[in-house]
């Protein structure tokens, strides 16, 4: 539904966009596989790349991370933050991301835990606002059934393939062995032996 909206947006005057903020503010995620490290301006500096710029993220969060006084609670907060995907610097968890939104969400996670929420309730709090998308471990439901069953199905299929192959090998092995004697041959053999 949103596809067409970015067809040819006018250029942004100073390019301070979401991507920019993500790069500037985050703790720094290099491109460890820099098949494509930088937006290349030359010929590709067109609509598609600009479209990425057309959403901005704020440049500041509220304060630095202050750990919870209770180590057990702090550990839980950290684990929950690791399970939630950051919306700004996507493909980082909010624990790993330095995006201000991620910081604010970490703060909220800590607040909810201090308020006595269970882990699931804290996750639900964020999911209610940003959707299932934020869960790095996709919940099992109709949409993700194929995903979760897929590896088992693959293993099963591969296993069947191997089993069929082994059966063929076994048949071939039998065929290679000398065939058992027919009744007629056996009778002849008996005659020869008795003679």
């Amino acid at each position: 539904m949103l596809r067409r909206l970015f067809s040819s947006p006018p250029p942004s005057p100073d390019g301070g966009g979401r991507e920019g903020v993500c790069r500037r503010r985050r703790r720094g995620r290099p491109n460890p596989h820099p098949a494509l490290p930088r937006p290349s301006a030359g010929g590709g500096f067109k609509g598609a790349f600009l479209a990425l710029l057309l959403l901005a993220a704020p440049a500041f969060a509220i304060g630095v991370d202050e750990p919870l006084p209770d180590p057990a609670q702090e550990l839980r907060a950290r684990e929950i933050a690791k399970s939630l995907r950051c919306l700004v610097c996507q493909n980082q968890s909010i624990e790993d991301s330095n995006a201000p939104l991620a910081k604010d969400l970490r703060r909220i996670v800590r607040e909810r835990i201090e308020a006595g929420d269970s882990d699931a309730k804290v996750q639900d709090y964020v999911v209610a606002r940003y959707g299932d998308w934020v869960l790095l471990k996709p919940p099992f439901n109709a949409r993700t059934a194929a995903l979760w069953i897929g590896p088992f199905a693959l293993l099963g299929l591969a296993g069947i393939g191997v089993a069929v192959y082994y059966r063929r090998l076994a048949t071939a092995a039998k065929a290679e062995a000398p065939p058992p004697l027919t009744a007629e041959e056996r009778a002849r053999l008996d005659r020869l032996v008795s003679d």
């Binding site: 998308w133 949409r143 979760w148 590896p151």
Partner: peptide
């Protein structure tokens, strides 16, 4: 290999078929 491929492309499959977004992260 197949499972990594599935997990990597699944968000794309789902988006292409149902226009829904899902994340497949390290836990999967």
């Amino acid at each position: 290999t197949g499972s990594v491929l599935l997990g990597t492309l699944y968000p794309l499959f789902l988006d292409a078929i149902t226009a829904e977004k899902v994340s497949v992260g390290p836990p999967f």
